[in-house]
Design a protein around this nucleic acid. Structure first.
Length: 488
RNA sequence: GGCCCCGUCGUCUAGUGGCCUAGGACUCUGGCUUCUCAAGCCAGCUACGAGGGUUCGAAUCCCUUCGGGGCUGCCA
């Protein structure tokens, strides 16, 4: 194969944002990024918006925002510019037109006057005859008279690439040598009658013009590779200057189908709202189709850059597993410093209306974070965990309300109230000592039986952060008030 | 249908002819710890799709077969 090692590596991430970037897109972006960084090359971010009916400015803006949030910095592309721009294909239309005209002039492409309906009818026939459906070459060599006839009918031609006889073979970095015989690669459309380009034209022209050396993309594009190579040939690019291809395995949903709404959320925006940390998403996604080679699974972005090679990318598809993402997210949360944890928790607390953002509230949150850090797997759980600290009175869930109204519970709470009222130093260890002495030693209760009712009275739920620390955080007055309120 | 890609525990993976009676992680189950929930620790369950070769020896190489997926567009 060709030696590209002398050249600077230039990798591109080129999504077509027809919606929010999804898990598969991001896995590709992550690998593109990691490969560029690992090799000391450049990451080029290009927007493939040749289909403006489906790609909107809103989606483009969201894609940019998502990549930034994940920390996948690009060296050239929207907002940062670069010498090979513009990086939005919708702004490069004249370039594609020029090349299409060149192909026409050189005989590599030809005008095709077949209408969509005619094409569809002929394809249907091919299927009936059990032939491979595809363009039949009807307009390949039209006479001047035939062209005049079509023009007279008012037909507007599309520009179609001529696929020569033979085959295309290339060395996929992940799959090895792949061969496509051209009889299975029909002539394809480069440009619509209205002059707008198709993906196959734009992608190949831009990869060449932007001097892309490596194309790491989804495996669904594998079979379109011969068409791109055909465009390189028509552009007169030397084979040694073709980019190297690496087709990444799919990321699938639970049931062996492509990841979709039905079997797990796909939109990265959703994961962000749920409180998944960007570094956790990247760590997990890195493990889908790639592995460092040893038993390491907790991988930082820095380590990913150091360790990532295409050679270590798998060729088989991977299933997305929310449980494992959550486990990794929990690990990452536990590894956060309190300051970092705080800055990431605040947006959720604010958004959910738990706090308004006063200094005092933030102080309380900060002091409460240590006791909930190992108890959450998603950042949005901080709301449920800390809400009891910021409400005037807790609301009991049905089961807890029932439990606390029962006689044994009432007895416990009365006792707690009695011993706690006189406690001057309201510290968790003091509170614990008092309650243990009164409820365990004196009343002879089991810890679970003793502390359960108190927990419900104070936090509103039978599941909560550690009780004594919670009471300290709440303060004496409010803790006592809640115990009183729990008495019938 | 045709072409192309893929096939190790439920899932992600390690594994490139002997180190594999197949390792790790997530999940699940049981236990320990314990003020609830977590976290942590310990233990356990479960895999080389099948069939033929090649070889002293195969998860690793070859063939066949079965299964899954992609493409087959004036989508990308």
């Amino acid at each position: 194969m060709v030696n590209n090692s002398a050249k600077e590596v230039r990798v591109r991430f080129a999504p077509s944002p027809t919606g929010d970037l999804h898990v598969g897109n991001i896995r590709t972006a992550l690998f593109d990024w990691a490969y560029a960084r690992h090799t000391g090359g450049k990451l080029i971010f290009r927007i493939e918006d040749t289909d403006r009916e489906r790609v909107t400015d809103e989606y483009i803006a969201r894609a940019i925002e998502t990549l930034r949030w994940l920390g996948l910095q690009w060296d050239e592309g929207p907002e940062v510019g670069g010498q090979y721009g513009p990086y939005l294909q919708s702004q490069r239309l004249d370039i594609y037109t020029q090349w299409a005209q060149t192909f026409l002039k050189n005989g590599d492409a030809y005008n095709c006057y077949c209408s969509t309906e005619e094409l569809e009818a002929r394809r249907e026939k091919q299927r009936e005859l059990n032939q491979a459906p595809g363009y039949d070459g009807k307009c390949r060599s039209l006479s001047a008279a035939e062209i005049a006839e079509f023009e007279a009918q008012g037909r507007k031609p599309v520009i179609r690439m001529r696929m020569p006889d033979g085959e295309t073979r290339f060395n996929d970095l992940i799959r090895g040598e792949v061969v496509f015989e051209h009889k299975y690669v029909p002539d394809f459309v480069l440009m619509r009658a209205d002059g707008s380009p198709l993906y196959t034209l734009a992608v190949a022209v831009d990869d060449v013009l932007m001097k892309i050396t490596h194309v790491l993309r989804g495996e669904d594009l594998l079979s379109s590779t011969p068409r791109q190579i055909r465009v390189y040939q028509a552009m007169n690019v030397k084979p040694e200057d073709y980019p190297l291809f690496a087709h990444l395995p799919f990321v699938m949903g639970q049931d062996n189908a492509k990841l979709s709404k039905r079997n797990g959320e796909v939109s990265i925006a959703w994961y962000r709202e749920q409180g998944f940390l960007p570094e956790a998403i990247c760590n997990y996604l890195a493990l889908l189709g790639w592995s460092p080679g040893d038993d390491r699974e907790n991988i930082s972005m820095q380590e990913l850059v150091e360790l990532f090679t295409v050679e270590r990318v798998n060729s088989s598809p991977a299933r997305f597993d929310m449980k494992k993402l959550e486990a990794i997210n929990g690990d990452k949360i536990r590894a956060l410093t309190i300051e970092d944890f705080l800055s990431r928790a605040l947006p959720f607390l604010l958004k959910d209306g738990v706090i308004t953002g006063t200094e005092n509230e933030i102080e309380v949150v900060k002091s409460a974070l240590p006791i909930i850090q190992e108890r959450i797997a998603r950042m949005n759980e901080v709301t449920a965990m800390l809400k009891f600290l910021f409400v005037d009175q807790v609301e009991f869930e049905a089961e807890s309300a029932q439990k606390i109204s029962e006689e044994p519970s009432q007895h416990v709470i009365a006792k707690a109230l009695e011993v706690l009222a006189g406690l001057n130093e309201w510290k968790h260890d003091q509170i614990e000592a008092k309650l243990r002495a009164a409820l365990l030693d004196e009343l002879g209760l089991k810890p679970r039986v003793a502390f359960g009712p108190v927990r419900i009275a104070v936090t509103g739920s039978h599941i909560s952060p550690p009780l004594f620390e919670s009471m300290e955080l709440l303060g004496k007055d409010r803790s006592i008030a809640r115990l009183k309120a729990a008495v019938r």
